Amino acid sequence: MLNLPAISKQHLIIFTRYPEPGKTKTRLIPALGTVGAANLQREMTEHTRFHVQELQKVIDISVEVRFAGGDSQLMQDWLGLDLVYQSQGEGDLGSRMARSLFEAFQSDATKVIIIGTDCPGVNAQILETAFEKLHSFDMVLGPAIDGGYYLIGLRQPIPELFVNIEWGTAQVFQKTVDIAQKLNLSYVNLSPLADVDRPEDLPIWEQALAREMEK
């Protein structure tokens, strides 16, 4: 068992990447350039962190950042000392998510949710709802409009949900639902939200910022 800091029964894992130019948001480089794409990665992660902090004012959760690129020191310098940082490690996205879930449950969590930072519509209310749904369902999923998902929550590790899936394709959400049905898992879907992955998605981010400014 890993020597991780104590975590709450309700545990949130944020998957992100250190914003190094040329290595992040690569599909947006044609529109934004390497530095612009990295800056967007930085801003979107900070946006997610803000909403997670709002959630922590309402419910008792522990938060962990699983990062790719960079190192723990760079992540701390960027996002602060009050978060737990762990490298995502090797393997495809599925194996990295499955590993992070397994380790959280090993550390006595009873509800674990993973989110990315690509979906500016994720807010404290949606996250609170997701944790509430895990009282009643084995799995909660947040479908992304592009066919993936922006959130997955479980009450126990279920590695089958993360294998034989072509990550980054439009079939990810449906394939995950199909696996859940074969395993007889009870599940519930949250509201569909849009990812920001491609140049044509940039207005989604700009609209999200405008809404934040209005509050």
Rank of each mutant, 00 (worst) to 15 (best):
M1C: 06
M1D: 15
P5A: 00
I7W: 00
K9A: 04
K9G: 08
Q10A: 07
L12P: 04
T16W: 12
E20Q: 15
G22C: 06
G22S: 13
K23R: 15
K23P: 01
T24H: 03
K25M: 15
K25I: 12
R27Q: 15
I29W: 02
L32D: 00
V35H: 10
A37Q: 14
M44Y: 06
T45C: 06
E46W: 10
R49D: 03
V52E: 02
L55K: 05
Q56Y: 06
I61N: 04
I61C: 03
S62C: 01
V65R: 02
F67I: 08
D71A: 04
D71I: 04
S72Y: 02
Q73W: 03
Q73A: 10
Q73P: 00
Q76S: 07
D77T: 03
L79R: 00
G80F: 05
V84G: 00
Q86A: 07
Q86T: 07
S87H: 13
G91M: 04
L93A: 10
L93K: 14
L93N: 13
L101Q: 11
F102M: 07
E103L: 11
F105V: 03
V112D: 01
I113V: 15
I114L: 14
T117P: 07
C119T: 15
G121H: 07
G121W: 04
T129G: 00
F131W: 08
K133R: 12
F137E: 14
D138T: 01
M139C: 14
V140D: 07
V140G: 14
L141H: 09
G142H: 10
G142I: 10
P143H: 11
A144Q: 01
I145Y: 11
G148N: 13
Y149F: 15
Y150L: 06
Y150V: 04
I152E: 09
G153M: 07
Q156V: 06
I158R: 07
P159M: 07
P159S: 08
E160C: 04
L161A: 10
F162S: 00
V163N: 05
E166Y: 01
V177R: 07
D178Q: 13
I179V: 13
K182T: 08
L183P: 09
S186H: 10
L190M: 12
P192N: 11
L193N: 12
D197V: 09
E200L: 02
E200N: 06
E200Q: 09
D201H: 08
D201N: 08
D201L: 04
Q207T: 11
A208Y: 14
A208F: 04
A208G: 11
R211F: 09
R211Y: 11
E212I: 10
K215M: 11
K215S: 14
